[in-house]
């Protein structure tokens, strides 16, 4: 029951997102959407995923998007209706919904995902790895290589931001350099020349 309430709420928020033109409102709506998703994960007993969704999706992403808004404008350009993108989106959505029809029921013990390595993790992880939280055992030990990849992705993202947007230089060095002053003098003389030329 609560699943349906949360899913309908997510759908309503998604519709609001699509209609909203103010980017600040869009960012906040995204946060609400993420938080509802986190609630849904809690209801489905995936507390670790819910925790990550709440911290990363609802928390940090929202703050980072707000920080990004400081660099851009807060209003979206008015939308134009085009047939082709609408067709592509509708088709993709229909295909995705068609794909979900073939999925096993939620919580079905005979689903393929519960037949492969999951029984081994549940039965043996306490003896092989130790931690009572099986999710930690899987993430850090059984699938340590994957987690290393994720960490490297995050590291690369931060390194890329540092390289592209530049390292921080303190305000003290804001004193104009000789070159800047020379450029400024040149532009002011050019401005003065232009002013002289424009006024007869």
């Amino acid at each position: 029951m609560i699943h349906y309430v949360l899913l309908i709420f997510m759908a309503v928020v998604a519709l609001g997102l699509a209609r909203q033109r103010n980017l600040f409102a869009v960012v906040i709506l995204f946060g609400i959407y993420s938080f509802t998703a986190a609630l849904l994960y809690v209801v489905m007993d995936a507390v670790d995923v819910a925790f990550t969704e709440a911290a990363v999706g609802a928390g940090i992403s929202t703050v980072l998007m707000v920080a990004t808004l400081a660099l851009t404008s807060t209003e979206e350009k008015p939308a134009t209706w085009r047939v082709c993108p609408l067709l592509v989106v509708t088709l993709t959505g229909a295909v995705l919904i068609y794909g979900t029809l073939d999925m096993p029921r939620y919580g079905d013990p005979s689903a393929p995902i519960h037949q492969h390595v999951a029984p081994h993790y549940i039965e043996k992880s306490a003896a092989e790895v130790g931690p009572p939280n099986i999710v930690t055992s899987v993430l850090a030990s059984y699938r340590g290589y994957d987690t290393l990849g994720e960490v490297i992705v995050i590291f690369t993202a931060a390194a890329g931001v540092l390289v592209l947007l530049g390292r921080y230089r303190p305000k003290k060095r804001r004193v104009p350099s000789r070159k800047d002053q020379a450029v400024a003098r040149k532009t002011t003389t050019r401005k003065a020349a232009a002013r002289k030329a424009s006024s007869p």
Binding site: I60, A70, A157
Partner: peptide
């Protein structure tokens, strides 16, 4: 990474460049 990305984005206008 989170601190770096936020500080770089939010402090971008402050940079003398």
């Amino acid at each position: 990474a989170m601190i770096t990305i936020f500080f770089t984005f939010a402090g971008y206008r402050n940079s003398p460049g």
